[in-house]
């Protein structure tokens, strides 16, 4: 939906990104010169042990956090150095979010929650796309329910629909299945994969679950703030292998 030039820039791109927290003794380098591209129409997972900087990378890519050095682009736009107003507008119009905690507004119905980003922007949903999204997440009969009347899996599906409805350049998902049982988790993941494959959406997902990562087209591995490897066409086994190889002294990877 956004106009792009002929070179089709990546949906999101990090160039030599550094991120440092604290000073002196408490200084922690979260990202040390990370460069990565996330192509359009692809489902990318970012993996890594706790403290590897995967969440920080995603926050920087999404314009939620600032970088200390380097540049971040979303679509063809450089977002590094943007003010709050421009960043807010970027998040509203060109980025979608899915969180581990669902983060739905309890006062709004499912339908209102899904429409929220459009309402904030003062836009109307495209009715065709609306139907596609609602049917894909299978929420048509639950639209008037409040979040408290929905199960965890249903709530996360509402959150996914909310992220998709604006057809953003890229959707960032932060451990989207972390709070769900495995069946609901699998539903969400298949649904995310379907929206990439069938509807040409772009998703960047942070996870430490190898099964979740295996739904992606490509997995990027982070350790100690740097990209150390990547896999294309992953399976749970290959991902787990890679993780084991990457960091032997890190805490055991959850299954």
């Amino acid at each position: 939906m956004t106009t792009t030039d002929s070179r089709e820039p990546a949906a999101a791109r990090a160039g030599e990104v550094w991120k440092v927290y604290g000073t002196g003794e408490a200084r922690v380098v979260a990202l040390r010169g990370v460069s990565a591209e996330f192509e359009r129409g692809r489902f990318t997972a970012i993996m890594g042990p706790s403290g590897s900087g995967k969440s920080t990378l995603m926050h920087c890519l999404a314009g939620l956090d600032t970088v200390d050095r380097g540049e971040v682009h979303v679509g063809g736009t450089k977002i590094t150095g943007m003010g709050d107003k421009a960043l807010t507008r970027l998040r509203r119009d060109r980025v979608g979010f899915i969180f581990q905690q669902f983060n739905l507004l309890p006062t709004l119905s499912a339908q209102e929650n899904i429409r929220l980003p459009l309402d904030i922007a003062g836009r109307k949903p495209d009715p065709q796309w609306w139907d596609i999204v609602i049917d894909t997440v299978g929420l048509r009969d639950r639209l008037s329910h409040r979040p408290s009347q929905l199960s965890g899996g249903q709530q996360q599906r509402v959150a996914c629909a909310r992220a998709l409805i604006g057809r953003p350049d890229v959707i960032f998902a932060d451990e989207p299945t972390g709070n769900l049982d495995s069946r609901s988790g699998a539903e969400i993941l298949s649904f995310l994969r379907a929206s990439v494959r069938e509807h040409n959406q772009t998703i960047v997902m942070v996870t430490h679950d190898p099964v979740a990562a295996s739904y992606a087209d490509r997995v990027v591995f982070l350790a100690d703030g740097a990209i150390v490897d990547e896999l294309t066409g992953p399976t749970p086994e290959t991902v787990l292998d890679m993780m084991k190889r990457l960091d032997t002294h890190a805490e055991p990877v959850m299954l």
Binding site: D84, T88, G96, F97, N103, L105, L116, P117, I120, R162
Partner: peptide, 16 residues
């Protein structure tokens, strides 16, 4: 706080 954060994340401006 959390809700506000979400609203801001999905594009609610400061003035809004």
């Amino acid at each position: 706080t959390r809700e506000l954060g979400l609203l801001r994340a999905v594009g609610l401006g400061r003035a809004q």
